[in-house]
Design a protein around this nucleic acid. Structure first.
Ligand code: FES
Ligand code: FES
Lengths: 146, 146
DNA sequence: AGTAATAAAGACCTAATTATCCTTTATTAG
DNA sequence: CTAATAAAGGATAATTAGGTCTTTATTACT
């Protein structure tokens, strides 16, 4: 569905948002530990998110990543587009060159309904909203099994 | 969503089914041409489908692939499972080790609804049914743009 | 000024997926 | 029996995704 990078990105952002009233920034190491992702790879992803202005960063001691609490909330679709591009959301389910209403693939009708449902979910849900539910203990960002 | 191999597999099977009242078998070359897929790669995929008994094959002159018209119709989910496995259908949308109702990821609730919709689609739709719509001119298996 | 902490950037590596090629085996027509 | 045909199978190449490492830039604290 989404690439691993994209999944890590969403988890990282939700974690960041979940502690964004803290004035302290959050370091890479902590993020990776809390979402159970490979540190160096997560760094790459954070770089992309930072360049796309989905997250802010500060170098140096006590530096780290943070989300601007005054900026508008981040929609999931913005994250997916930044990491995976649009093809994953709007492409044909059977791999035709494009999804087309006039030259539809055999599953177009049913599939596009589902895909639109997914796209709507991504447009409606925000990182911050999911972060609030996380803080309320309604969800988790990793499974510890050992 | 699905791997390329899986998309080719579904397209190939639909094409095969669409001409399965023809007693003649269909060669690899024709299949690949009709669904616009790389020939050798398609051969590999057909091998898998053949081993999983989703398709039959015959060697030699006038050989090729065919679908047993007396066997029960092939559900899309059987194809997806054969090529991509089950994780793509049942895994957590944010990449947690497993999708769990009791330890849900932040998007579990909304996402699993959509994923179940997709799973239902795959369970309900059959290759043969889609092939009939293809023959009725309601859909296409490739786009020619040149 | 000097040092430690931290993200940014780029080079690099590894694994999986996608794709091609070539040889072997089975089948059929003649 | 032979030649032609077509799938099966194995080896390998190319591409993409996933992941690591090293160096550089920036900042805070002494
Ligand atoms: S054409 Fe395949 S999903 Fe729309
Ligand atoms: S736990 Fe993530 S989708 Fe169910």
């Amino acid at each position: 569905m989404f690439s691993k990078a994209c999944k890590y990105a969403i988890r990282a952002l939700i974690y960041l948002a979940s502690r964004s009233e803290e004035p302290e920034k959050t370091g890479l190491r902590e993020i990776a530990a809390e979402i159970d992702s490979p540190e160096a790879f997560t760094a790459k992803i954070m770089q992309i998110l930072s360049k796309q202005n989905l997250v802010n960063s500060a170098k140096g001691p006590h530096g780290g990543f943070f989300i601007d609490t005054h900026a508008p909330e981040i929609k999931l679709i913005d994250v997916v587009k930044a990491i995976d591009g649009t093809q994953s959301i709007y492409g044909c389910g059977l791999g035709l060159k494009s999804c087309s209403e006039t030259e539809p693939c055999p599953i177009h009708h049913e599939f596009s309904a589902i895909r639109n449902g997914l796209a709507n979910l991504l447009k409606e849900q925000t990182i911050q909203q999911l972060a609030r539910e996380l803080k309320a203990g309604k969800s988790v960002l990793k499974h510890h099994l050992n």
